[in-house]
Nucleic acid binder design. Structure first.
Lengths: 190, 190
DNA sequence: CTTCTAGATGAGAATGGATCTCAATCCAGA
DNA sequence: TCTGGATTGAGATCCATTCTCATCTAGAAG
């Protein structure tokens, strides 16, 4: 049974910084499934491909929609249930990570392999999610946690505030600025 | 309407470290409501009292249940809707904070006044939530965020891992230890 | 290659946290 | 005390996620 985050790093240790090819990722996934005595199905593969081809944070619903919108996928019907099941399976295996931005919408996911650990800043004006990484911060964090006698498996730092762009736009003042209109749709071209 | 987190710190600046009395808290709440042109109702007061009398993380549902279980409250019927509404109102005002532990259950809340900022460590073995605070960490964090050009309003650090107690209990080994209650797999029978 | 079967899927029902509706009620300023 | 707009209660509703179960299939065995 896969452990929450430890499983990452047990089997599929492909590059920590190099961006792995889809082939490598697929192999790692295959290996993971095999280790768990689970099967490699078309659906799982398709979802894996899609989420690794997407360079933004996606919800299960969004994935589901896209799995249907695309022409190629039309041949393969993937149910909502399977999307959710697969997503949670991939989360266990460390292939994706749930974000848990305190949004109204559902959980967002991002792929993790070849994606160095990072934290998130969520702009309360425009809704954009910005990733950042800071070595010093990570170190101090790890030290602080260890100091508590806690053995860390994973952590998540979310910061809410106003992004640089919105600050410049001047909306960041005080009044009741309308908190953006939905989401910053930066649809990656896939 | 109050803004997301900025409203905190505008009106009710009572002690940052001393534990405020219920009276002080109530006054601050009153002041906050007044500033927002909102009314001080029995329900709001009751919920405030209850959550400030509770020194653990509670869900809306739990509060709702308790508001009914108690003898005194029996006179005052508080609906689920009001609990949710009030909770979110108090979150806006900075009187409570939503936790968003990635648990199966709903959102958990904790009161904030007289409760220095802290982070959370969630034990994946026993499920306990441990609070901790580290000055150095906070400083480095603030610096790192500012370095990104981001204007922070609030942040939340959650750490998942194994608590000291569970480590001692030896359950923390490696091979497929049962991760406390919850099962990893979503499949039904096993 | 064919069989066989436990794991996997699809469709849709079920679940459950959170929100919404709206008539009745209640603060709080005049 | 009066009055109007804010607030509430009860339950409907929304919606993300999970569950059920009949059917299908990956993949090991023969």
């Amino acid at each position: 049974m896969a452990r929450v985050g430890e499983s990452v790093g047990s089997g599929h240790r492909l590059g920590r910084r190099a961006i792995p090819t889809l082939k490598k990722i697929t192999e790692a996934f295959e290996q993971f499934l095999h280790g768990q005595k689970l099967r490699l199905t078309k659906q799982r593969l398709e979802i894996l491909r899609l989420i690794y081809a997407t360079h933004k944070h996606v919800s299960a619903e969004e994935l589901y929609d896209r799995l249907h919108g695309d022409g190629r996928a039309s041949a393969l019907r993937i149910s909502r249930a399977t999307v959710y099941r697969t997503l949670s399976l991939m989360a266990e295996g460390g292939f994706v990570q749930a974000l848990e931005i305190g949004r109204d919408r559902g959980t967002l996911y991002e792929h993790t392999l070849g994606h160095e650990h990072h934290d998130h800043m969520i702009c309360i004006e425009c809704g954009r999610i910005i990733e950042f990484h800071d070595d010093e911060l990570e170190q101090v964090q790890a030290r602080a946690i260890k100091r508590q006698g806690f053995r860390e498996v994973s952590h998540r730092l979310n910061v809410w505030g106003v992004c640089a762009r919105c600050q410049k736009a001047g909306k960041s003042g005080s009044g009741g600025g309308p908190v953006s209109a939905e989401r910053g749709r930066d649809q990656a071209g896939d």
